[in-house]
Design a protein around this nucleic acid. Structure first.
Length: 347
DNA sequence: AATGCGGGGCT
DNA sequence: AGCCCAGCATT
């Protein structure tokens, strides 16, 4: 038996941050915050949370918005399927359930974009269900305190962590404890440089006693990075540009871009063929290397000061967009930055 | 069970 | 350069 939950909760009362979703049980607000915070740090997601609350005060506003508008508000946050699932689920709950969220884990986990973690969080925070949350923080805190050698990203490891977390969940104030263990992982038992010296659990932490703190939790999957080479073609004439929508199952699906040709090797300006008949570039922008979790993208933008004849590209899914409407189209972050920082120099 | 999906921050 | 982040959907 351990007083682990009590110590975690007491630490939380002394150290918790004041965050907007901590002072409500509104399922719409909690759900929105949890979707935004999937694989995303609070510092990065907070402004997006405020923007969505501002633009879509309740779930019906979100349901009645256009998907492209939602994607535009999500621009820069990454994992864009979250935004599409958010919008889909808002429409579903608004139309089919009159805006009322499912009230328990089993029903919540059926929603698109809501998995075991998010369903547990909503069930616990909004409805007081006795259900332990298991996120990256929980893997780390439990993996260290109990010095768990089982990888958390394996089948057996996943089940072990889930049942351990559930067994530790107190009967009283379990919702607060769920918040507490995640906050403890985010602020005290951090991935790098955990503050073990001042930790209230340092006398009972098995990983600290065994000198395995930095080795916990164990993960078996390793990341492999792919290099990609993108040639964008920016046709700029009379205050208009050509855009195309990404439709393939690939990065940035459903976002827009300048017409793109992907090369299989390092770009050679002399050998790169023109994207279309009559293309004549006037400038080449080298974009900074775009570093993502599983790929590095080397991109350049070829600028042409005139459009090709429309009958040449009308069979492609390219659209002609006035520059002052460009901001309505969700772009990948590397193109958004280019538009913000460089495009005005071309016009 | 394994893989793909963003962008930012840290070591 | 590699790992992590209030994970999930797809295959």
């Amino acid at each position: 038996m351990t007083n682990f939950p009590l110590l975690i909760t007491e630490w939380y009362q002394r150290n918790k941050r004041d965050l907007p979703w901590r002072s409500t049980k509104n399922p719409y607000h909690i759900w929105l915050s949890e979707i935004i915070l999937q694989q995303t740090r609070i510092d990065q997601g907070l402004s997006y949370y405020h923007r969505f609350i501002d633009h879509y005060p309740d779930i019906h506003h979100l349901a009645n918005a256009d998907e492209q508008e939602v994607l535009r508000d999500w621009q820069g946050l990454g994992y864009y399927s979250r935004a599409r699932n958010l919008h889909f689920t808002a429409r579903q709950i608004s139309k089919e359930r009159n805006g009322v969220f499912p009230g328990n884990y089993t029903e919540l986990v059926k929603l698109k974009g809501v998995g075991p973690y998010t369903a547990a969080a909503i069930a616990s925070f909004c409805f007081g269900e006795h259900r332990a949350v298991v996120d990256g923080n929980v893997y780390r805190v439990l993996g260290r305190f109990f010095d768990i050698e089982l990888p958390f990203d394996s089948g057996p490891g996943n089940k072990h962590y889930a049942s351990l977390a559930q067994s530790l969940l107190p009967q009283k104030d379990h919702s607060t404890y769920n918040q507490a263990i995640m906050e403890f992982g985010a602020l005290q038992c951090t991935p790098a440089n955990p503050n073990c010296i001042e930790c209230p659990l340092n006398h009972q932490c098995l990983a600290l006693a065994n000198g395995t703190v930095t080795a916990r939790p164990v993960k078996e999957g390793k990341t492999k990075i792919r290099k990609r080479y993108f040639d964008y073609y920016l046709f700029l004439q009379d205050g208009h540009v050509l855009l195309e929508k990404r439709t393939k199952k690939d990065i940035w699906q459903h976002l827009f871009q300048f017409p793109l040709i992907e090369r299989s090797e390092v770009l050679s300006p002399k050998k790169s063929p023109a994207p279309i008949e009559g293309f004549q570039e006037t400038h080449i922008f080298e974009l900074p290397k775009h570093v993502l979790s599983h790929q590095h993208i080397f991109a350049r933008i070829w600028l042409a000061s005139s459009f090709p004849d429309e009958d040449i590209w009308q069979n492609k899914n390219w659209i002609k967009v006035p520059l002052n409407e460009l901001e309505k189209f969700p772009l990948p972050q590397l193109l958004h930055r280019f538009v913000q920082n460089e495009l005005e120099n071309c016009v």
